[in-house]
Design a protein around this nucleic acid. Sequence first.
DNA 1: TATGGATTGTATGTTTGTGCAACATATCGG
DNA 2: CCGATATGTTGCACAAACATACAATCCATA
Lengths: 404, 404
Amino acid sequence: MNAPASIASSPRRIRQTNEVAALWALYQDGRLSRADLARRLRLNRSSSGHIVAGLTEDGLVREVVDNPAVAPGQVRAGRPGIMLELVPEAVTFLGVEIGVEHISAVEIDLKARIVSSVTEPFDGRAADVSTAVARAIGLAFDHLSEDRRTRCEGFGISTPSHMDRNGSVRLAPLLGWRDVPLADLVRSRLPSQIPVMAENDANALAFGATYGIGAAHAGVTLFLVMETGVGGGIVIDGRLFRGASGLAGEIGHLHLPTESGPSRTLEQLVGLEPLMAAYAAVSAGREARLDLFLADVQDRVPAAVSIAEDWARCLAYALAQTCRIIDADRVVLGGSVSALYPLVAARVTAHIQMIQEPGFPVPAISLHDNTSFGSAFGAACMLHQRYLSLESHRFSDDAATSAG
Amino acid sequence: MNAPASIASSPRRIRQTNEVAALWALYQDGRLSRADLARRLRLNRSSSGHIVAGLTEDGLVREVVDNPAVAPGQVRAGRPGIMLELVPEAVTFLGVEIGVEHISAVEIDLKARIVSSVTEPFDGRAADVSTAVARAIGLAFDHLSEDRRTRCEGFGISTPSHMDRNGSVRLAPLLGWRDVPLADLVRSRLPSQIPVMAENDANALAFGATYGIGAAHAGVTLFLVMETGVGGGIVIDGRLFRGASGLAGEIGHLHLPTESGPSRTLEQLVGLEPLMAAYAAVSAGREARLDLFLADVQDRVPAAVSIAEDWARCLAYALAQTCRIIDADRVVLGGSVSALYPLVAARVTAHIQMIQEPGFPVPAISLHDNTSFGSAFGAACMLHQRYLSLESHRFSDDAATSAG
DNA sequence: TATGGATTGTATGTTTGTGCAACATATCGG
DNA sequence: CCGATATGTTGCACAAACATACAATCCATA
């Protein structure tokens, strides 16, 4: 599975690798004893103990105090292990989303759980880069206690834009930005030791949607955001797949054939605007609002149902096309328009099965619960993952003794 | 970039990691001195020396004897380093392709260069699994000297089929197979220490096509095979992307809109058969052969050119759609039909640019030189890569002391 | 031609981290 | 109360990389 490594291990690097592996295991499994950890990491119990000691000293791991009424169900002989868990408040990660109409910030802890979040209206079109960045940083940091600020170990920022690998904006039509070194800009305004990442909002949203599900899903997840615009992101084996230039998964501009006339893009077919336009055309009297439309579909109002079925067909077509290429086993739908999906779920899967050859695996489609506060959460999660990896800033200093 | 590691490092594991990294560096760069290696791997010169000593003792690395007339161009002060290189004949990897009409075997060395290859006619439809496997093993091993057989460190087999992660065939319509544990079957008939992998032919071909190019390409490559059938494969950062169930990149069944009538699959539009059918329709008298068609296109015979342009449009459309999803920066075309591409290359790129939004990066399209003997080469390369990774069988024995 | 500068390859001792084995500890069942 | 079993901890050995020093080998220059 692993590609050949191009970087070598140094003696100190072992411990770093193992600490990271231990933290990751604790994040995924929640609670483990030292012995569990040793088995999980294929390590000796004594080594496991040493590593835990180190992490405990760093304040990242602690022994669980409210020891539960034994393990659930399973009663084993022998000395019971002392359960360990991450110390959630040990560090925090901040994520900010700069949107076109609003700006929001999320703070998550070491367990990747949301600690706090704020959303404010914001005119992305009007603000220039510098003020937007200042606003973003302010929103994320201002309400933090001094204590928390020093514990910040990562700052993620997401914008509706095409970004390169370094977090520089190439083009952001919705914001009117072009060639903005966003990550560098943020970095220059924060304490230097805080890692900064910038990512496209759909990608961040996709990452957050899968990251929250807990155990890193080994497989391919396609995430689709449907609002006025339609975007998407792909997560492979728990890692965001950006593509060669960061545009992977941006299937809003996928072309779909129409029964008559030229082909249209997915965005022009399943986005909020065309949906509301179609609904307005048939609901002459009433206001064309999404909730009203959904209610009509639910009530089986023929005209609304017909629109919904068209929507389902287009969505199914797009998903089928996409899965032929990336072979996803999971599809997650987000954005306000995704609320329509449960009403036509059967239609969508039926269409997919009809389009695909028999035997082609059909992905599991699920809805993204919007409790996780949009792409800001995902941006924060990216830094959470980074912290629990070998790139973590925890190691860069120590290694700097000799590194040039 | 790295995902959090789930496996820990042991003290011995370090050396393995470093040996692998050294071998990989030597494979990529061809020739390196010990000091070069130390810099490349961020290792101490002395450590580099130790690692090289170990690898030399194992017979995998040697000092270059025909020391070249100094380095090309660059003349530096100081003692010149002793160049090191892989010992090609140290190990061999075998790859076999079981096709519908032929069966072929390829032997590559530690430098991933082809040592020998055989192709024989074979009736895949008629042969049952057992005889096919026997034939494949025979073809690969029979002409090998006793010496080479013992040096075999990997056996790869490719078939036109849908395979799961373990190398079991789920469905192979062209061969009439279903639920065949192909890799296990091969494994049971080979010396137990030889690693075996089985892979879909398009995937193997895709992997081989990028693997041969030398330095592992950091990026996304889409490979397209166009014969009677149209298949494909995706390689991300030098690693084959299989998708959730091994179907990633199989874009032959991608739906394309047609100006009139229902949408057709890519295979029905750019495959060999529809192309020849269209050609037959306009070349009433002459035989409909690919080479004649290509000649006609080259001679600008209007009817042929028209067909070629349709072909270019369809190909461009499919590539554009696919690149919207996976954001590939490189496209490689293979299969006999790909010979048509150079004649209409300008058309294809023009179409892609027209379909895509301005600013969308257009991938570099290149032709696969068929010198590498099809998917058998790719299958062998997969085992070459495996050998140069931590999963290499060189390490599995040692680790088995405690592994359950 | 000899010397200095620069770079490589090798040999020394030190540091770090893991594995192994033994021991104390804690719980269950009889 | 004791054996069985599993956990956590400790002391020791080994492996591997680092730092440093030294010999070797080239270029440039006086």
